[in-house]
């Protein structure tokens, strides 16, 4: 409080000193100049107050330390950071990996998890050709529009249809999974803390045996990365559970990596375009910034080098 008052007083005084120096008329109140010692004291006091309050805050709360209410087991183990290439600034998704990841989703995940926000057409030109996607869509049946007598018939899927869900609705999904709802995977990478890292760690983090002493309710599996450690989903990715058409060895981690990258694409289909646009925008705006700095200096140079001088007339 004291320091702040002192600071305010000194700033006011220094401003007034500056103005009196600058002003052409010299008969103003510049006579009572503050001694530099007082200013030094005020500045020191202000610094001490600032440093003191910051260190008090640091002592009490710390910087960037998250405080967890639960134990690590309750919160789930924090996923390690994996070097995802597609998370680099100027890298697109690896579309071969997206294609493999879609295969993993289709053959493994899709038996329980829906991907309801991704239509078949979104895969065209990303992982598959038009003909491939059409063939895949036609394997599924969708409700047609009401026919002449108002009945709803089934028709083969089209490109504009969404990827079908394994269950008719959430209740059916719960009933089939002992009350646990398999979440929709369309936005799961955005929707989970840790994103790609978390899902990869979860998929590959099932231990062979739960640690001694863990008690889990019936039907739950132990996974240290899952908050609460008891997860209804069992380990699904085992080496060789799918067979990749491009000959990539289908190890657990390879499949997990591919499907996570695919799910990242599902959550951010604009990813590649966005990064390319970002690159272009940054390139242009950085040049523009340099140019505008030059133009500012150019426009201000005559104003800043101008000098107005008072020469007292001699009578």
């Amino acid at each position: 409080m004291l320091a702040r008052t002192a600071l305010r007083a000194s700033t006011l005084r220094s401003i007034s000193r500056q103005t009196t120096k600058r002003a052409a008329s010299s008969s103003s109140n510049a006579s009572k100049e503050q001694s530099p010692r007082m200013l030094n004291i005020a500045g020191t006091a202000a610094t001490v107050a600032a440093v003191g309050s910051v260190s008090l805050y640091y002592q009490q709360y710390g910087f960037g330390n998250t405080v967890y209410a639960g134990t690590p087991a309750e919160e789930g183990l924090h996923a390690p950071h994996f070097p995802w290439v597609h998370n680099e600034w100027l890298k697109t998704f690896d579309h071969a990996a997206l294609r493999r990841g879609f295969q993993v989703y289709r053959e493994v995940c899709a038996s329980c998890h829906s991907l309801s926000r991704v239509p078949w057409r979104a895969l065209v030109g990303v992982t598959h050709t038009v003909d491939e996607v059409k063939a895949m869509a036609e394997e599924h049946e969708y409700d047609d529009e009401p026919n002449d007598v108002g009945d709803i018939e089934k028709r083969a899927g089209k490109l504009s249809d969404p990827i079908p869900s394994p269950y008719a609705n959430d209740n059916a999904a719960r009933a089939a999974n002992q009350g646990a709802l398999p979440p929709d995977l369309s936005l799961i990478v955005k929707g989970r803390h840790g994103g790609c890292d978390y899902i990869f760690a979860l998929l590959t983090g099932y231990p062979d045996e739960p640690p001694a002493g863990t008690k889990l309710p019936e039907g739950l599996n132990f996974n240290p990365y899952f908050p609460g450690t008891g997860i209804a989903m069992a380990r699904v990715l085992y080496d060789g559970v799918v067979e990749y058409e491009d000959g990539t060895p289908a190890t657990t981690s390879q499949m997990a990596k591919d499907v996570v990258e695919f799910l990242n694409w599902a959550a951010e289909p604009e990813h590649d375009q966005r990064k390319k646009m970002g690159m272009k925008v940054l390139a242009v705006t950085s040049v523009l910034l340099a140019l505008s700095i030059w133009v500012k200096r150019y426009k201000w140079a005559p104003l800043k080098t101008r000098k107005i001088v008072y020469t007292p007339p001699k009578h």
């Binding site: 992982t127 491939e132 590649d272 690159m279």
Partner: peptide, 21 residues
Amino acid sequence: SDKVWDNLNKGRQWKDIRHRY
């Protein structure tokens, strides 16, 4: 910038793997 982008992401984009399918 298209050229630079394609160069940075060689082999990663759909157009690079399209010919396989």
